[in-house]
């Protein structure tokens, strides 16, 4: 039997990048991945790709910062499947810039999607998980949420916030057998990091003990473990997947 057989998993921001890898991997392990993202074509393509491998996925278009939208989609998912086992809060954006020159709108945008979106999705899913007395929530944070990063004050603050949100929700939901953990990726090769100058990439790689960038698969692998019963005694933790970047 597959490790996540018959599980229903919602992954936000899953049309591309790390989110897609997570969805692909969850489906490979038997789950039905529900891909949530903003762009319809991208969502359809992602679903198709998983479908082509003979695994299960469906897509929904939603903005995680819109609580009514999230609530109605989660309701629809719950109606269709009768349960929601796993939520992966992955949707995130960057609007980098030095703090001195950071526009308030860039601060707000990043906070809204990354931190508030995680809060909204957690709040809207927990009623279903509480009722069934089981559930797993995984929040994608970042090592910069732990160590900070020049030029990413908004992003780092949002990711640090996600770590604190993870701990608080783990405490609130523990009595209902809902586990909440955060994953802090280090330097992962994605479209987000492809935009960085080569010099920055080289500098980072030099600072990583395993001296290479990670892949989205490295994150997805941890998701499988944390979402499975094998991790049933782990909650409220932030686990770094960073090649040893910070210890």
């Amino acid at each position: 039997m597959k490790r996540l057989e018959d599980k229903v998993a919602i992954i936000t921001g899953a049309a591309r990048g790390i989110g897609f890898s997570i969805a692909e991997m969850l489906s490979k392990h038997g789950a039905t991945s529900i891909i949530i993202d903003l762009n319809k074509e991208a969502v359809d393509a992602a679903v198709q790709q998983i479908d082509d491998l003979g695994n299960r996925a469906i897509g929904f278009i939603a903005d995680v910062t819109n609580s009514d939208e999230v609530a109605s989609i989660f309701k629809e998912i719950h109606k269709k499947f009768g349960k929601i086992d796993i939520l992966i809060n992955n949707a995130g954006i960057t609007k980098d810039g030095l703090l001195m020159k950071m526009k308030e709108s860039d601060w707000d945008a990043v906070m809204n999607v990354n931190l508030k979106g995680t809060f909204i999705c957690t709040q809207k899913v927990c009623r279903y998980m509480m009722k069934s007395r089981s559930g797993v929530i995984l929040n994608i944070a970042s090592v910069v949420g732990i160590m900070g990063n020049a030029g990413q004050a908004n992003y780092a603050a949002s990711k640090g916030g996600i770590i604190a949100l993870t701990k608080s929700s783990a405490k609130e939901f523990a009595s209902r057998n809902i586990r909440v953990n955060a994953i802090a990726p280090g330097f992962i090769k994605t479209e987000m990091t492809d935009k960085l100058p080569q010099e920055v990439i080289d500098n980072y790689s030099d600072a990583i003990p395993l001296s290479r960038m990670g892949t989205a698969k490295d994150i997805a692998n941890l998701c499988i473990f944390l979402a499975s019963e094998e991790a049933s005694y782990i909650t409220g933790q932030t686990i770094q997947v960073d090649g040893g970047l910070i210890m």
């Binding site: 009623r127 509480m130 009722k131 609130e172 009595s175 209902r176």
Partner: peptide, 11 residues
């Protein structure tokens, strides 16, 4: 009831 139960009940 605990505090979560009361919230669930109100819902």
């Amino acid at each position: 009831a605990d505090s979560l139960d009361t919230v669930e009940l109100i819902m």
